[in-house]
Amino acid sequence: MDGLFVSFDLTIAWALLLAFAIYVYVVLDGFDLGIGILYPFFPEKKDRDLLMNTVAPVWDGNETWLVLGGGGLFAAFPLAYAILMPALYPPMIAMLLALVFRGVAFEYRWRATSRLSEKAWDGAFIGGSALAAFAQGIALGAILQGIEVEGRQYAGGWWDWLTPFSILTGFSVMAGYALLGACWLNMKLEGDVQHRVRRIARILALLTVFFIVAVSLATPFLEASYWLRWFGWPNMLATAPVPIAVGLITVLLGRSLFAHGRDWLPLVLTLLLFLLCFLGLGLSIWPDVVPGEVTIWDAASPQKSQAFMFVGAIVLVPIILAYTAYAYWVFRGKLDPEQGYH
């Protein structure tokens, strides 16, 4: 089996595969968390039921990509997993507990018998979604700004992750997820609710672009290598298309949020925007997994482990994508507020 893989670098393949899994997670769970963040703008029970029903059949699958991200990192890059998790301890724990709250709210909300307990689970859904998004943003910022490593272990304190930059990235991810959520709802709903969602989406699009610009401007100042990557010559030739494309998509997104018809377009454009941000982040840290400290090759598990999993992943990931797509297809289309489709 080893001979089969000499022609290309499995470690790079795994880095790309994990990046893909994380992107799919962001794409799928992003709108799902975003709906929780948008809940406060829809205080009426009728609307809230509708919002939640748009994701009820698929949210389990969406969160599974997060498990794949964690499990895949553990399997393909165990050293990175072992350094990052303790370094990000408080945000990670906060994210996990937040996901507990919002996850169970999907089921409990319909079981609550009093107004009070229903309000409480709505609160859990809102708080859990917002905190999970914020913690993911914090984790992103903390990785970008660098992590102290000694030997094969994290060597910093348990508050190192908390900086103005990581708070900025925290709010950025919240805004971005809320935008994804609004675009999803724009696609799934109609009538008055859709109008309200659209108005919110326009504001969120502005906010998200503002955060993208802010994070992009701050990032090159964190590490010299980031600066060289983005502004050094001739690297700039390779990196410049990313911000240019961001600008272009922003314009298209703005237009699509004012135009009529093609309700799927804002969601697709926002996903492209996320993809570009993702590319930008990748360009900044490549080929490190702990920036400035550990490269993907340092952290990689042996070829035997990566090859064993790769065979499975190549076969299974397309199958998973196929039946995930099927599940979405089954529950496709606008949700009729008069019916509640399940």
Partner: peptide
Amino acid sequence: ADLTGPVLGPLMAYEVL
């Protein structure tokens, strides 16, 4: 996690997949 990742990680990845 660092020490057992190469052996146990793939099994858990297969569980997810």
